[in-house]
Simulated scan of single mutants.
Amino acid sequence: MRILRFRAFTRPGDPTSGNPAGVVLDAESLSDADMLGIAADLGFSETAFLSAIEPDAARVRYFTPRAEIAFCGHATIASGVALAREGAGSTVAFTTNAGVVPVAVSPERATLTAVETSVEPLGGVLLAELLDALRLETTDLDPMLPPAFIRGGNPHPLVPVAAGVLGRLDHDADAVLRLQDRKGWDGTIPVVHRISADRFASRNPFPRGGIREDPATGSAAAGLGAYLRQHGLVTMPAEVTVEQGAETGRPSSILVSIPPEGRIRVTGSAETL
């Protein structure tokens, strides 16, 4: 077993950028309790545990400091880069609890092909409760982008907001955690603002993952891509960039490729910590 430390979705030339992730290679001997303990000791939002590693395949499980989750985008990018540096082939099939995720890998960056995504309406009492936990008002929402419940490997309630809202976001972490625990939301809560046709800013509260806010969230970015396609908000095929993490001191950049149909792809760079 080897424990590696990476930062994923980095920005060129910025040593503070990217979301930290643990990557544990050759994890066959570890129990669930062992994996949870290692994830808690590392203290990152997620750690990936890889077993049955072959040149073109691996079994991957993901743990936050609190629990196992089905999928993690930034830890997948980090794992892909780690395997490329170990001599993996150009594409590695990751068998995750969310499904099989093909990952194109290189020693500097990786592209994951997300599992099938879904988009559902989000409103009513649940939206009101979520806004209250986020300390937001309905007037803070973007009238052109409806809230939605998205899945890109993990469940995420997507909250698009107007200009100026992200900078003053100060969510009630205890209230968000109670809501996440009650609803079983293992993913972050992406609060996003559309800067331009192909550029988004995002903040992602994540107390269920043991941190206040996640610096970069690949599964939420994949879900956002599906949302934009379903609502006809981009011209197909499309590429959009999600900028995240500046408020946490970890500015990150996520590239989302959206085909006219089929699975969304998410690309990012990774470096060792």
Rank of each mutant, 00 (worst) to 15 (best):
M1T: 13
M1H: 08
L4C: 08
R5I: 13
R7Y: 00
R7I: 03
T10M: 10
P15Y: 11
P15S: 12
G18F: 05
G18A: 04
N19A: 12
N19Y: 08
N19F: 09
V23S: 04
V24M: 10
L25C: 06
A27V: 07
E28T: 11
A33M: 02
M35L: 03
A39G: 01
A39W: 06
A40S: 14
D41L: 13
G43D: 11
F44S: 01
F49Q: 12
I53C: 01
P55C: 12
D56I: 00
D56A: 13
D56P: 02
R59K: 14
A67S: 12
A75G: 09
L83N: 00
A84H: 08
E86K: 05
T91A: 12
V92M: 01
A93H: 03
T95F: 13
T96F: 08
V103Q: 04
A104V: 15
P107E: 10
P107Q: 11
R109E: 15
T111E: 14
T111L: 04
L112M: 15
T113L: 09
T113K: 09
T113V: 14
T113A: 11
T113S: 14
A114I: 00
V115H: 09
V119S: 07
V119A: 13
E120K: 14
P121Q: 07
L122F: 09
G123L: 06
G123S: 14
L126Y: 01
L127T: 08
E129T: 12
E129D: 15
D132H: 09
D132V: 05
L136M: 11
L141C: 02
L141S: 11
D142E: 14
P143T: 14
P143D: 10
M144G: 13
L145S: 06
L145G: 02
L145R: 11
P146I: 04
P147D: 07
F149L: 15
I150L: 08
N154S: 14
P155D: 14
P157C: 05
V161F: 09
A162F: 12
A163S: 15
G164I: 13
V165E: 06
R168C: 02
H171P: 15
D172A: 01
A173C: 06
D174P: 01
A175W: 00
V176N: 03
V176I: 15
Q180S: 10
W185I: 15
W185R: 03
D186F: 02
P190K: 02
V191Y: 05
H193A: 10
R194E: 06
S196C: 01
A197W: 04
A197L: 04
A197C: 04
D198C: 00
N204F: 10
P205F: 00
P207G: 10
G210M: 10
R212K: 13
E213D: 07
P215L: 09
P215M: 06
A216T: 13
T217R: 03
G223K: 09
L224V: 06
G225Y: 07
A226Q: 12
Y227R: 05
Y227G: 03
G232L: 00
G232T: 04
G232Q: 03
L233K: 07
V234E: 08
V234S: 02
P237F: 08
A238H: 01
V240Y: 05
T241M: 05
G245P: 08
G245D: 05
E247R: 13
G249S: 10
R250Q: 11
I258M: 05
P259C: 05
P259M: 00
P260N: 06
E261R: 13
E261Y: 07
I264E: 00
V266I: 14
G268F: 10
G268S: 09
E271S: 02
T272H: 04
T272M: 14
